[in-house]
């Protein structure tokens, strides 16, 4: 019985050429030996032949279908390119904002410091030192505020600080699969430093000390298979 069920299941496979010779032979034998199976087989064969005939009358996809598909694809790609261009422009705009908090301690910090000192030195014996320490804090404030961020100094992620006003810089996006080690080795090979990033879409700002090397450096980076996008910053 189980054998018959298996053979029954094989009728569609037999009719669509999916059986081995041995399996086909088994079905052929069943057709000869079992009239009920033969009837079953004949019904399936009729379905198969009927569908094959039906397909002859079926309409084909319209002649312009492929060009409609390509129009859709072109529109999709244009939209994608536009979105990525907008993302890059947004990323470029971000590093231009000067973050004064990186170079100037906030005023709140000094106020807090003075307050804490006051509480430490509120004991009468220590009162004599308050004036001197307040003077010292005020002095630090004045020094730090007068050395404002005229040149943008970034805390680098790959090494010592780079002053971008003296070098040249570029926007780079690395492949998602790029490892930190690969990025570090590539940047070391061209003496470039990461000075900002990554942004929301993975954009880094790289800098090199000598602007004369920018073309060669960009060429090397562009050729590296871990770099997805590169653009010189103006």
């Amino acid at each position: 019985m189980a054998d018959k069920k298996i053979t029954d299941e094989r009728i569609p496979q037999y009719l669509t050429g999916q059986l081995t010779d041995k399996e086909k032979h088994r079905v052929d034998q069943m057709i000869e030996d079992d009239p009920e199976f033969e009837k079953e087989f004949a019904e399936f064969r009729q379905i198969k032949e009927s569908l094959d005939d039906l397909s002859k009358d079926m309409p084909s996809p319209p002649a312009d279908a492929f060009s409609r598909i390509m129009d859709n694809i072109d529109a999709f790609e244009a939209e994608e390119a536009k979105v990525s261009e907008e993302q890059v422009s947004a990323e470029q705009a971000e590093p231009e904002k000067t973050d004064h908090s990186q170079v100037q301690p906030p005023l709140d910090f000094f106020a807090g410091l003075i307050e804490r000192m006051r509480s430490w030195l509120s004991v009468p014996q220590a009162g004599w030192g308050v004036a001197a320490l307040q003077m010292a804090v005020i002095l630090i404030m004045v020094i730090s505020m007068t050395t404002g961020p005229e040149e943008t100094t970034y805390q680098t992620l790959t090494g010592q600080a780079v002053i971008t006003t003296e070098g040249a810089s570029m926007n780079v996006v690395f492949q998602d699969t790029a490892t930190e080690k690969e990025i570090r080795e590539l940047l070391n090979s061209v003496s470039a430093k990461i000075v900002d990033g990554p942004g929301a879409s993975g954009l880094y700002v790289l800098a090199i000390d000598d602007p004369k090397n920018i073309t060669a450096v960009m060429g090397t980076l562009e050729a590296a298979n871990i770099v997805k996008f590169i653009q010189k910053r103006m």
Binding site: P59, P61, P62, A65, F66, R68, I69, N72, I73, F76
Partner: peptide, 17 residues
């Protein structure tokens, strides 16, 4: 026929994407 044509175009657009 009309629905099949429209969906057919959409299918291959999705295949590409």
């Amino acid at each position: 026929k009309e629905a099949a044509e429209d969906i057919h175009v959409e299918v291959y657009t999705q295949v590409w994407k």
